[in-house]
Design a protein around this nucleic acid. Structure first.
Lengths: 232, 232
DNA sequence: AAATAATGACTGACTGGTCAGTCATAGTGG
DNA sequence: CCACTATGACTGACCAGTCAGTCATTATTT
């Protein structure tokens, strides 16, 4: 916690043993007619969605839970029925949005695709599944605020990043063995992702001064990396 | 405005009895012997340096000016003699640290260096002038907090980024004209910087799980980009 | 050169406003 | 009918920014 003194006072008397319904229900408006379970899941999603909006525009510290509640169409106290505290809400948000990426990327790594097709897939995956979705904002949040949440960074590294890196690395090794990409690349999968991250940062800070064609930049980069070379 | 009943303009005598003790305990960053002008400059620098530390570790919002003051060996009020407010302190910090980079990079762009030497210089410049200095922290701050300071982002874009990009771009164009680098690269100078930025982010979030050899990654990347290719 | 006055840099207790988290009370689905 | 869900006014911590007061340094007078 950022200010440990604040919440230490009251002992936590959380009795709920209920398993969290982590199923990805659609974040539609919550019809009054729906069953409790459905409404509950809807509420949770609405809160997460509202939190993403507020955290994205104001930053974690400056975001007000009152605003999150209003945006979610819920009272502030309700948030505390679904999340232990603000920090926990933040962590759940990141967790819920980024975990699903892993499977997609691992699948991409396992398919044995010809190099040009692969390059294309990587670019498209990034643009369509990240850059053009709210995942872009979540990753921006992770970049901006992650440093102050070491537990979250650790979770993210173990559950998401390490697995993605490992998948990309083995893919690069196989390609390198066939002589399709240079050896050195497999050691630094970060290099492949780098322009994507830069694009995310750029879009938040400088887009209005100098727009950036993300797809084209990614394509240029990947093609440069994967281009056939003269023998050394 | 409602005033507390006894409040007049009555000056209330409350000179601190602990004053002498406090002054004795204060770590004197600036020797009391120095002239006013010297001490003043020293104070400003001490405040900026302390602010960088506090902003870096807690983030802009969470950083307390009380802590900045303590770290600088100064009273809180003193900060307001040198900076209008917290935001202005932040802006001055970024401005003071990053503006000097421009000249260095423009000089690099103007020297007509052989490609392998140039690659080396770029990597070394980044590692020595940014990554191994506190500029790394300032850039991390810019990335993390810049979005909430549009004015600052604009200043930074105009005064720093645009000029760097322009220098790098013209350098790349000349190299492309000689056939030394691929044409596409000049359109996206961001690609060259990307791994450097990723390294800065990585070092803040994941270094403790998986250390990253920045120099080697940068070198790998630049060499891949600049490598001789088969004719297309 | 010493005494005295003027200056303005510096201090830190205090204020006003903010907001995370609580809990007494009010619904409502099963 | 009551356990579960939801509410929102409230509280206590917290902190940026203020300003009346202090005192070291510099300027002026004797």
């Amino acid at each position: 916690m950022l200010r440990p003194s604040r919440s230490r006072k009251t002992p936590i008397r959380r009795a709920s043993r209920r398993k969290r319904a982590v199923q990805a229900a659609r974040a539609a408006a919550v019809p009054a007619s729906a069953s409790r379970k459905v409404r509950s899941a809807g509420r949770r999603d609405a809160i997460l969605s509202a939190a993403l909006d507020e955290f994205s525009t104001r930053g974690f510290e400056a975001a007000r839970l009152d605003d999150v509640a209003r945006r979610a169409g819920v009272a502030k106290g309700t948030i505390y029925l679904y999340f232990r505290d603000k920090e926990s809400l933040f962590q759940e948000l990141i967790r819920a949005m980024l975990t699903p990426l892993v499977g997609t990327i691992e699948a991409l790594g396992e398919a044995e695709l010809p190099l040009p097709v692969l390059a294309d897939r990587i670019v498209e995956l990034f643009v369509r599944e990240v850059y053009e979705t709210r995942r872009k904002d979540v990753i921006r949040l992770m970049i901006s605020e992650g440093r102050r949440f070491p537990k979250l960074a650790e979770f993210y590294y173990r559950e998401v990043l390490a697995r993605i890196i490992s998948a990309v690395r083995s893919l690069l090794r196989r390609a390198a063995a066939r002589g399709e990409v240079p050896e050195g690349l497999a050691e630094f999968p970060q290099i492949i992702a780098a322009p994507g991250l830069v694009a995310i940062i750029w879009s938040g800070l400088f887009e209005r001064f100098e727009p950036l064609d993300v797809r084209k930049m990614m394509k240029t980069h990947v093609e440069l990396l994967f281009a056939p070379r003269r023998a050394t």
